[in-house]
Amino acid sequence: MNVKLRRNLLRVALCLIAVAGGFLLSFIGMYHSIILDNSEFSGAGAVLPPLEGLRVVSEAEPVEMSPGDRILVSAKGPSTTLVFEITSPETQQSREISYTLHMGFKKQFFLSVPAIVGGEKDPFFVE
C-alpha cells in the first residue's frame, strides 16, 4: 500500500473516530430531565394509586415525595438508576425498588412512580 493512500485512510479513519467519539461523548455526557409524578396512574388495565412514604434516591440529593407531588430530577449519561424507598405508614416496613432508565438522546422523561412500583411495563405518561 503506498504511503499516500495509507495516510489518507488513516486520516479519514481518525475523522470518523472523532465524529463517533463526539456521538459517544454526547451519549455519555448528556443531562436529561426526569419528571417524576406521584399521582394516580391509569395504565393499561389497572388504576394505581399514589404512594405514601416515598423517598427517591437519584444522582442528586434524596427527596421525599408526598402523594400528588411532582419533582424534577436531572440525570447524566446514557442510563440512570432511580431507587424508590417506600415506607408503609402503617407497618413501618420499607421496601426498595430500583429502576434503570435508558435515556439515549431523549431529553425529557415523564415517569409515574406508582406505575414503576406497580411493575407497569410502560410507566411513561403524557402531559
Binding site: G22, L25, G29, M30, Y31
Partner: peptide, 13 residues
Amino acid sequence: GLGGMPALLVAAL
C-alpha cells in the same frame, strides 16, 4: 444538554 468532561470534549470537537 451535555455536561461534565464530555461536554468540554464535544465543544472542542
